[in-house]
């Protein structure tokens, strides 16, 4: 069996393109005839957002970006349509805009327990599809329990912020790479892919990294 190609992905739980990009990357990885090892990293799009933001995503984006409500609604309608095209049924009327730092801490907790990929999928679906809150410890612990993690231990770790330093390290590394938007994919530590690109782009990058790795090995 060939050596896995490592893919590091910077992403935020409340980034609509990150969930779309996840699906497109997964489709690309399926086209690639080889092993892929994925690790998610934290990126906070809006670290100053309150956990209990009083308003809708439309209110939030309109205020934050200084755009008319109609324009924001059009943006969300557009991204919802793209999501639909990859099989994701976004429900923006139910979304709870929040602060995602603790959800990133949970992703690091899940990584430490070998469940990061399942947790990432659960959090994205919770936020965009299920209308669940992903900013409060109790709600996050419920979601963690749904994938089989120990609810009480999750509450303990998140309350103590055991993984906050790991979140900060990811954010610092993103900054060092010059990452300004997400999703951002780093293939085998060599190639960067920004945004929700087509599956073929990911497959091609994986093949390229794989070929180079094989050539290195045979030198």
């Amino acid at each position: 069996m060939s050596e896995a190609i490592k893919v590091d992905i910077w992403s935020d739980v409340q980034c609509p393109w990150c969930y779309i990009g996840k699906r497109k990357f997964e489709a690309g990885a399926a086209l690639f005839d080889g092993n892929v090892e994925v690790e998610y990293h934290s990126f906070e799009l809006a670290p100053d957002t309150p956990v209990d933001f009083d308003g809708s995503p439309v209110d939030y984006l309109s205020q934050r970006k200084g755009l008319p409500v109609a324009e924001v609604e059009q943006m969300l309608e557009h991204v919802t349509g793209i999501a639909e095209s990859v099989g994701l049924h976004y429900d923006y009327d139910s979304v709870h805009q929040t602060n995602t730092v603790i959800s990133h801490e949970l992703l690091h907790y899940a990584k430490a327990h070998g469940r990061q990929l399942d947790m990432k999928e659960r959090l994205l679906k919770a936020y965009f599809v299920d209308g669940r809150h992903v900013g409060r410890i109790a709600d996050l612990a419920d979601l963690a329990a749904e994938i089989g993690l120990d609810r009480d231990d999750v509450i303990r770790a998140l309350t103590a912020h055991d993984f906050l330093a790991d979140v900060k390290a990811d954010v610092a590394q993103a900054s060092a790479y010059g990452i300004q938007g997400v999703p951002f994919f780093v293939i085998d530590g060599k190639y960067g892919i920004s945004g929700a690109q087509d599956p073929d782009t990911f497959a091609q990058a994986l093949r390229q990294a794989h070929t180079e790795k094989s050539e290195e090995k045979n030198k």
Partner: peptide, 23 residues
């Protein structure tokens, strides 16, 4: 933080993404 090697950008420049403050 892990060491940060130089990375080569691949793909289209105009793919959808999120930056600070939204899409």
């Amino acid at each position: 933080a892990a060491s940060v090697p130089t990375i080569e950008l691949l793909g289209q420049a105009a793919a959808g993404g999120c930056c600070g403050g939204g899409s």
